[in-house]
């Protein structure tokens, strides 16, 4: 069965002669979390707005297929947590949430029940009849999240869902996001904390200057440069490591050292070639964290553009 819920094909969007989005194509599947990453001003929010039907693209197209629905009706089946949070601040929490669920096509009574269930899940029931503006920032954040999921969307777009939440609530939110994924939702997650992206996402899409930088599974992206990161604690002298094949960026700090193994330098060959004079206490070889891959890819792009 085709799991594709969203297909974005070559979308382009210009604002005032500036190209904000320049030919982005991607797919989001049911039961999958796709990380949508990029530095500030890369065209993420514009792409998201196009995907959700807030803007029309100048070129290219979006097709969303959810339970046989296509076209405008699909807006009922999508959920959105915008980066710029906003709720009717002078309205009561429950009223505002029921209204947003109604806009997604739910009946009032049904909307109310579902909203109350979600408020309970986030320990917000005692605040249901309070005005939104009376809530703390973290609580407003949770309310905003409820607004994006109360109608149980099939395509959920979360823009920086973790910002402003304490670690406890970040974990709660992660659990909920995983549940929604397991229930079959296609989730597009945009976040700046790469460790959280690594934890949650199956695939990632990196955008910079409106264009795709890379797109694939975490595994593919990490193997792309064929690099490894080595960290060790040692006794003796680590300087000779710099002479070994493939070693780059050797940094020594007391009894700790870190280095990068370049493309083609296999971890196995590296371990076998360790000098006898070096006594290793701790040792790890990992593929580079997404954070480093992100930073280096963007820096490289920006250098080339300059």
């Amino acid at each position: 069965m085709d799991r594709t819920a969203l297909r974005v094909q070559g979308i382009v969007k210009d604002f005032d002669g500036l190209r904000a989005v320049d030919g982005i194509s991607l797919e989001a599947n049911r039961g999958e979390i796709l990380g949508f990453l990029g530095p500030n001003g890369a065209g993420k929010t514009t792409s998201i707005r196009i995907i959700l039907g807030i803007f029309e693209p100048d070129e290219g197209g979006i097709s969303i297929r959810i339970g046989g629905l296509t076209g405008r009706l699909v807006k009922e089946r999508t959920g959105y947590l915008p980066e710029e949070r906003g709720l009717y601040s002078d309205a009561k929490v429950l009223d505002a949430l029921v209204y947003f669920a109604e806009l997604k096509g739910l009946r009032r009574t049904d909307a109310r029940q579902r909203v109350l269930r979600w408020l309970d899940r986030f320990d917000l029931l005692p605040w249901a009849d309070k005005k939104v503006e009376k809530l703390s920032k973290g609580m407003q954040q949770k309310v905003q999240f409820v607004a994006s999921v109360a109608h149980e969307p099939d395509l959920l777009v979360l823009d920086e869902p973790f910002s402003g939440l304490d670690p406890l609530h970040q974990d709660l939110l992660k659990d909920v996001v995983r549940e929604l994924r397991d229930a079959g939702a296609a989730i597009l997650l945009s976040a700046h904390q790469m460790n959280q992206v690594e934890e949650l996402c199956d695939r990632v899409f990196l955008i910079n200057r409106g264009r795709q930088v890379f797109y694939g599974t975490l595994d593919e992206i990490k193997s792309r440069d064929g690099e490894h990161v080595v960290r060790l604690r040692f006794e003796g002298s680590a300087e000779p490591l710099a002479a070994l094949p493939g070693v780059e960026n050797l940094a020594i700090d007391g009894d700790r050292a870190s280095l990068r193994l370049g493309r083609g330098a296999s971890p196995d060959a590296f371990v076998r070639s360790l000098p006898a004079a070096l006594t290793v206490r701790e040792f790890s070889v990992t593929r580079p964290p997404l954070h480093d891959i992100f930073v280096r890819a963007i820096e490289k792009e920006n250098r080339e553009a300059a």
């Binding site: 009922e76 959105y80 906003g86 709720l87 009717y88 947003f100 607004a147």
Partner: peptide, 13 residues
């Protein structure tokens, strides 16, 4: 100003 508009426009035209 209240940024509600993004949420509203992701639901209705």
């Amino acid at each position: 100003q209240g940024r509600v508009v993004e949420l509203v426009l992701s639901s209705i035209s």
